[in-house]
Nucleic acid binder design. Structure first.
Lengths: 204, 204
DNA sequence: ATTTTTGTTAACCATTTGGTTAAACTATAT
DNA sequence: ATATAGTTTAACCAAATGGTTAACAAAAAT
C-alpha cells in the first residue's frame, strides 16, 4: 500500500503552528498541541524547526510581514484622501475575514516585547511612515476640502473603527448576540459604513 | 526591633499579581515573578490564594467587575444621546489612564475562553444590555435629531475609537513616535475629539 | 508565662514542557 | 540487492514551574 504523503510535513506543521499560536499566543501554545494538530510526532517539530522560538517567529513574521506592507502601500499611495480611506478599510477587512485572529495575535506579541516586534516586522526599509497620510490630511484642510481636524485623531479613528471589531470579536459577538455569519456581514457593511462615517464627520 | 509590616502581605500580593498578570497574561505569568514582585516567598502565594487560577480570577474579576458595571450604567442611564456618548468616552478614558493594561488584559482573557469569561464578568444580574442605547439611537433618528445610521455601527464606532488606542498603545506610541506623556495628552484630547467627531458625523 | 494561632520561609516534590537521541522506516541512487 | 540520505517515531532527559511540607517565628489568646 502506498502511503499517501498528503502534504509535506513542513507545511502541515506550519499550518498547525499558525492555528495554535494564533489562538493561544506564544506562551500558551504547547509544542505537543502543535504536533497533535499537525498529527505528527513532537520530535518532527524540532527536526524541521529548531525550537519553539524559531517556529513562532517563522509563523508570526510570515503572517505579519506579508500583511503590513500592503497597508503601508495604501497609506503611501498617491490616491485622494477619501479614496485612500476607502481602500484601507476594504483591504484590511478583506484580509481579516480570512485571518481573523491576526490582529489579536499582533496585539499580543506587540505587548510582549514591543521593540523586538517592531524591529522584526518592519525591516529598516519597510518602516511605517504615517507622515505622508498625516500631511495629506493637512493639505486637504488647507485646500478647504475638509474641516479643521487633528490629523492624528483622524488616523486613530480610522484605524480604531477598522481594526477594533476584529480584536474584540468574541466580545462583540457575545454582547450584540451575533453569530459568525452575522459578524461577517456586519464587517462587510463596515467597508462602506466607516468611510461614510468619516467623510460625514470631516467634509465641509 | 519591630518589623515594619509595611502593608498586609495579602494586598502586596494582589498588587504584584495584578501587575504581572496584566503585563504577561495568565499563561505567561510565573508564580515566582509574582512572589518576587511582592518580595515575599512563593509559598505565601499559596497560603493566601490557593493556586494560580484562584489568584488570577480574583485579580481579574476584581478589576473587571468594578469597571464594567460603571460602563453599563452610563449606557443605561436616562441621559440624552450626545451627553451619553460624552459620558462614556470621558469615564472610559479616565479609568484607562489609571489602568492602561486593562483593555488588553480583558481582550486577552476573553479570547482565551469567551464563555467562561463573559459568564464570570457579568453575573446574571449584570448582563450588558446594549438594547437601550441602540433603541435610543433609533428614537433619535425618528425624532429627526440625527441622520439615518445603523445603530450597531454607531455603537461599534464609539467603542472602537475609545478603546482601541489603549489596546494598541505600544503600536500607536511606536508608530506615531510618541512618549507616554504625549500619549496621555492625546487620550485626554480624545475625550472631546471623539464625541465631536461622532456628532459631526451623525447630526443632521 | 505558656499555649495556640497565624504568618513566613527554605527545601522539596510532581508534573509539565521544551528539547534530544537512537533506532526504525522510506525512498532513491548505485 | 545494497548503500545512502532523508524522514519519522518512541523513549528519554533536563529544566522550569506549580504546588506542598515541615519547621520556625511572631502575635494573640489563655
Amino acid at each position: 500500500m502506498v502511503k499517501i504523503k498528503d502534504k509535506g510535513a513542513e507545511e502541515k506543521i506550519l499550518a498547525a503552528a499558525r492555528k495554535v499560536f494564533m489562538s493561544k499566543g506564544m506562551a500558551g501554545a504547547r509544542m505537543q498541541d502543535i504536533a497533535d494538530e499537525a498529527r505528527i510526532n513532537k520530535a518532527l517539530l524540532h527536526y524541521y524547526f529548531r525550537d519553539k522560538d524559531k517556529l513562532f517567529e517563522l509563523v508570526f513574521l510570515g503572517e505579519a510581514q506579508k500583511f503590513f506592507p500592503k497597508i503601508n502601500a495604501i497609506f503611501n499611495s498617491d490616491a485622494q484622501l477619501f479614496e485612500k480611506i476607502e481602500n484601507f478599510v476594504t483591504e484590511y477587512i478583506d484580509e481579516m475575514q480570512e485571518n481573523p485572529y491576526l490582529p489579536w495575535f499582533v496585539m499580543n506579541e506587540i505587548n510582549r516585547d514591543p521593540d523586538q516586534f517592531m524591529y522584526k516586522i518592519w525591516g529598516k526599509d519597510n518602516l511605517p511612515k504615517p507622515g505622508k497620510f498625516l500631511e495629506q490630511i493637512e493639505t486637504d484642510i488647507k485646500k478647504g476640502t475638509i474641516k479643521r481636524v487633528n490629523p492624528v485623531h483622524l488616523l486613530l479613528n480610522l484605524l480604531s473603527m477598522t481594526i477594533f471589531p476584529f480584536v474584540a470579536k468574541p466580545m462583540v459577538i457575545r454582547n450584540l448576540r451575533m453569530n459568525d455569519t452575522q459578524f461577517k456581514l456586519i464587517m462587510e457593511q463596515r467597508k462602506k459604513e466607516i468611510p461614510k462615517f468619516i467623510i460625514d464627520a470631516i467634509r465641509k
